[in-house]
Nucleic acid binder design. Structure first.
Lengths: 151, 151
DNA sequence: AACGGAATGATAATCACTCTCATTCTGGTC
DNA sequence: GACCAGAATGAGAGTGATTATCATTCCGTT
């Protein structure tokens, strides 16, 4: 596993490519956002990001996060509280699901077993096609209690 | 299946019971909310509800929806846009998942087969417990194109 | 070095949602 | 059938996350 500072080169390359395609620049602030999200391993809120990178003004954080979302580099995740949470798109990290703590609202990644993933993919396709949809993605959200809140 | 106006008696009875337990009343407005959600078959936004029941002021809609959520009668569903969507709790309807149209944002219910549901529940629990979580609910969200948007 | 478009960041504005509070309703009680 | 207490109502103010504004600064290109 790469260190927090050493996010795999391919992520930065992919982001650079996409930004270039839209005549935009991979600035320091955007790099900080991507590094932070990549290092977190779970979806982060804007306050969390700004707290961990004080040189990043809130307005710039929101604006650049929106830019990255528009490019498909970042995905917005709805949580339990009224803060949006952000994570790198799956194609830049890895396919995963989320588990939300019903008590404290924290969101963590869950990496599915091949068995789960197989069941999910097949059944999702079957059920959805009954309703005439073309399914492109799936997302499983688990709700429960995190280790800290179980006590 | 019951007609839109004739939601199964048991739903109203259950809601009445819960409200009574909290010394609250099953007023006309609350009945309208429950009827509307039960008749919809998909999660609705507050603007949608208010539009279909103009006698219902926005502030009352929000306040009563919150009351119903606190009682566990209604569940809030996070959608793609910045409007919350609301549906009856699963114990008052039936366990189901959602499929979201990536283009128009519409959310519809998906009713899984028992076989899928069993596989899903077990596998999800197993994976989550590896991280020390205690899982109480699961929710599958499919993303795709609805029949209208496929054209 | 100069130009043009993009990025920045402090601030104002927006928008979904919640709170406030004076008034009205309801359901029991005598 | 009037009375009382607590619940509900609804118009409007308030809150807080997110977005738009805009003058200034930065960066790449010529």
């Amino acid at each position: 596993m790469s260190s927090a500072a050493g996010i795999s080169r391919s992520v930065h390359e992919a982001v650079t490519r996409r930004l270039a395609g839209a005549d935009q620049r991979y600035t320091h602030l955007r790099r900080v956002l991507v590094e932070t999200l990549a290092a977190a391993g779970r979806p982060l809120t804007i306050p969390e990001i700004v707290a961990s990178a004080p040189e990043l003004p809130q307005s710039s954080a929101y604006r650049n996060m929106t830019a990255l979302i528009d490019l498909g580099v970042v995905r917005r995740v709805a949580g339990a509280d009224d803060h949006g949470r952000f994570e790198l798109a799956e194609e830049l990290s890895s396919h995963h699901h989320h588990i939300v703590c019903a008590t404290c609202g924290k969101v963590e990644d869950v990496h599915p077993s091949p068995k789960l993933e197989r069941a999910l993919g097949e059944a999702a396709r079957a059920v959805a096609e009954e309703q005439g949809y073309e399914v492109t993605e799936h997302q499983l959200d688990l709700l429960g209690l995190c280790p800290a809140c179980r006590e």
